[in-house]
């Protein structure tokens, strides 16, 4: 399984990777991007099975990345991992084609449930 992690925080990318390992995805190939724009290029280049993406990022936000992908006809599985999980954000995420929105703080069980279901 190839997982692309898109987050402008190096610390958060590290936390997501370690939590994924705890959740049983230690064998997955994990790649990283630091904003939506880099993420868009990485999706095209690496063809990940799933994208785990922050919401607020410079250059291009997470929701902008998701919309750009869908506008290009790219249906890669996509989930948000973000500090906030308001009803409005969840609605926007779902309407734009995200499978889930995990809000921080998260646990390995959250990843097992959501990323596992997206396999």
């Amino acid at each position: 399984m190839k997982i692309l992690i898109v987050d402008d925080s190096k610390a958060m990318r590290m936390i997501v990777k370690r939590t994924l390992k705890q959740a049983g995805f230690g064998e997955a190939t994990m790649s990283e991007a630091t904003n939506g724009k880099e993420g868009l290029e990485a999706v095209k280049a690496d063809k990940p099975d799933i994208v785990l993406c922050d919401w607020n990022m410079p250059e291009m936000t997470g929701i902008e990345l998701l919309r750009a992908l869908r506008a290009e006809g790219n249906e890669v599985k996509f989930g948000f991992v973000t500090s906030e999980g308001t009803t409005e954000m969840r609605q926007q995420a779902q309407e734009s084609g995200a499978l889930f929105l995990i809000s921080k703080p998260f646990t390995a069980a959250d990843f097992t449930e959501h990323v596992g279901a997206a396999k």
Binding site: S9, K10, A11, M12, M14, I15, R18, T19, Q22, T82, S83, E84, G85, S103, K104, P105
Partner: peptide, 29 residues
């Protein structure tokens, strides 16, 4: 927060700022 293990290298100033900043970011949420 970053699930550091005993044999991990010490946090640099920039990673510390990033990690500690992430704590307040999560607190804000």
């Amino acid at each position: 927060l970053m699930m550091m293990e005993p044999d991990d290298p010490e946090l640099t100033d920039s990673v510390l700022a990033d990690g500690f900043g992430e704590i307040v970011n999560i607190l804000g949420g």
